[in-house]
Simulated assay, not measured.
Amino acid sequence: MAPRHTTASAAPLLVCALAVICLALAIPGHRFPLPWLMRAMSVLRRFPPAEPDFARRVHEAALAARPSWWGGRIACMEVSLATVLALGLCRRRVSWVLGARALPNEAHAWIQGDGFTLGLDEDDPVRPWTPLLITPEPPTRKGE
């Protein structure tokens, strides 16, 4: 008897394929000037927020899509940008956050959604991460 194809088994394959494509776009794309990236991501404001479980699966797929043979840099900035792009292609919104902390100075990129954060594992109260840029900015409610 032939195996049945269900949407549950097809979804991870589609998510992985989307993560690979978006990672391939994010590697050279993160080198564009920051104002260009911010303007391009402003389109995402119109989309509904991403569900935490779906965003987590896309982020994990982007992490898994990093090829071991690649000699260049594929770190937090590229993976988080790929995740934002992949979710945007799924018509879902998360924010791409660029932040820093001091002593010693470090920079980091992560993803922030409605009530969840991806790619920011360290919770150090002595040296917390400070978000410097959040794009697209979360939509504001009228009257605020």
Rank of each mutant, 00 (worst) to 15 (best):
F47N: 14
P48E: 15
P48R: 11
P48Y: 07
P48F: 01
P49M: 12
P49Y: 11
A50C: 02
A50E: 02
E51A: 06
E51D: 12
E51P: 03
P52M: 09
D53N: 12
F54N: 04
A55R: 09
A55T: 11
R56W: 03
R56V: 07
R56H: 11
R57M: 13
R57P: 04
R57K: 14
R57Q: 15
R57W: 11
V58E: 01
V58I: 12
H59N: 10
H59K: 02
E60K: 11
E60N: 07
E60T: 05
A61F: 07
A62Y: 08
A62L: 07
A62D: 07
L63P: 02
A64K: 10
A64T: 07
A64I: 07
A64N: 01
A65C: 06
R66F: 04
R66T: 08
R66Y: 09
S68M: 02
S68E: 04
W69M: 00
W69A: 14
W70V: 03
W70F: 15
W70Q: 04
G71F: 06
G71H: 11
G71C: 09
G72Q: 08
G72H: 05
R73T: 15
R73Q: 15
R73I: 14
I74L: 08
A75H: 13
A75E: 15
A75K: 13
M77G: 08
M77I: 12
M77D: 12
M77F: 14
S80L: 04
S80Y: 00
S80R: 01
S80M: 06
L81Q: 10
L81A: 14
A82Y: 07
A82V: 13
A82W: 01
T83H: 07
T83L: 06
V84I: 13
L85F: 14
L85E: 01
A86T: 03
A86E: 10
A86K: 08
L87I: 05
L87K: 05
L87Y: 07
G88Y: 11
G88Q: 12
L89S: 05
L89G: 05
L89P: 00
L89C: 13
L89Q: 06
L89Y: 09
C90A: 15
C90Q: 09
C90W: 00
C90E: 02
R91D: 04
R92W: 04
R92P: 03
R93S: 09
R93D: 07
R93N: 08
R93Y: 03
R93K: 13
R93F: 10
R93I: 14
V94S: 13
V94E: 04
S95P: 03
S95G: 14
S95F: 10
S95M: 15
S95N: 15
S95R: 15
S95Y: 10
